[in-house]
Simulated assay, not measured.
Amino acid sequence: MSASRPLPYPRAGATRDAEILSDPPRGFRARERRAAIGSGEAHWELARRQVLSWGVKELAGFGVLTDSRVDGRVSPGDPAELRYPVLGMTLREPVQVVWVEDARRRAGFGYGTMPGHPLRGEEAFLLEWGEDDVVRLTVRSFSRPAGLWRLLALPLRLAQRGMTRRYLRRLARSMRDGSAGDRSARDGSARDGSGG
């Protein structure tokens, strides 16, 4: 992995706030989906650990390769390679963590795509533990296809929507059945989602 590099898209960090939904950069599409994934402090703590350690991506089937984790947690500037099996091959997506938030009732992070990723833009996972005791996950992004991937714009958008639903479902399921484990206790060693 290489060190932190400039991001190849405008308005880095914009996924932190919902304002991006009404005012995305020109040529980019912004999306947000939110769902309740549990309730109470136990679910909050488990979900927080999952989100802040790439667990939400891993639960959705991605491998995460990074050598920059500190105590298993994401940090601003951390580069990573996300790996996802598609049609017997492994899609490799270089990204970089742009922002991290870890407060009493709000936690999450956003990452930006790097050259070689099929999309240009940013994706964020933001948890909130409401006064109603419900833990909610928001997945927010703005993106557009990169390079020759523009030829597959519609399939990419559909895949992105499906993956957003998968993030929400898988994290909610892990809260219900307790199968998420404690990824933050693992060392920062690379995990390869290439299926082999």
Rank of each mutant, 00 (worst) to 15 (best):
Glu41His: 01
Ala36Arg: 13
Ala14Met: 10
Ile37Met: 03
Thr66Ser: 13
Gly38Cys: 13
Asp182Lys: 13
Phe142Glu: 06
Gly112Phe: 02
Gly88Glu: 06
Gly27Gln: 07
Ile20Asp: 00
Arg104Ala: 03
Leu171Ser: 08
Thr15Tyr: 05
Glu41Gln: 02
Leu156Tyr: 02
Leu168Met: 12
Asp17Pro: 03
Arg29Gly: 02
Arg73Cys: 06
Leu151Met: 12
Gly72Ser: 00
Val100Arg: 14
Ala35Val: 10
Arg73Leu: 06
Gly13Leu: 01
Met175Leu: 14
Glu128Asn: 10
Thr164Tyr: 05
Arg26Pro: 02
Glu58Ala: 14
Ser75Thr: 14
Ile37Ala: 07
Val100Lys: 13
Ile20Pro: 01
Ser75Tyr: 09
Glu128Lys: 15
Pro145Tyr: 01
His117Pro: 05
Gly13His: 04
Glu32Gly: 11
Ala146Gln: 00
Arg106Asp: 14
Phe125Thr: 09
Arg166Tyr: 13
Arg29Gln: 05
Gly27Trp: 01
Val70Met: 03
Glu131Ser: 15
Met1Phe: 09
Glu122Val: 00
Pro76Met: 05
Ala18Glu: 13
Tyr167Glu: 12
Leu152Ser: 11
Pro155Met: 04
Ala14Val: 12
Glu131Asn: 15
Ala42Phe: 05
Arg161Met: 12
Leu137Glu: 03
Trp44Gly: 05
Leu126Pro: 02
Gly162Ser: 12
Met114Cys: 09
Gly63Tyr: 00
Asp182Pro: 07
Leu158Thr: 06
Ala180Thr: 09
Glu81Ser: 11
Val51Ile: 13
Asp187Phe: 05
Glu58Lys: 15
Leu126Asp: 08
Thr164Lys: 02
Phe62His: 12
Ser194Leu: 07
Pro8Ser: 04
Glu131Ile: 12
Asp17Gly: 05
Gly196Lys: 12
Ser194Met: 08
Val139His: 11
Arg69Gln: 13
Trp99Lys: 03
Glu123Gly: 05
Pro145Ser: 09
Asp67Phe: 08
Arg104Ser: 00
Ser184Tyr: 03
Phe142Trp: 08
Ser141Lys: 00
Arg120Thr: 10
Arg11Glu: 02
Val135Ser: 11
Trp54Asn: 08
Arg33Val: 12
Ala35Tyr: 10
Pro115Met: 04
Trp54Glu: 03
Arg165Asn: 14
Ser141Pro: 01
Arg11Ala: 07
Asp17Tyr: 09
Arg183Gly: 04
Ser194Arg: 15
Arg5Val: 14
Trp149Thr: 10
Phe109Gly: 08
Leu119Thr: 00
Leu7Trp: 02
Leu127Trp: 10
Glu123Asn: 13
Ala30Gln: 09
Gly196Leu: 15
Phe109Thr: 09
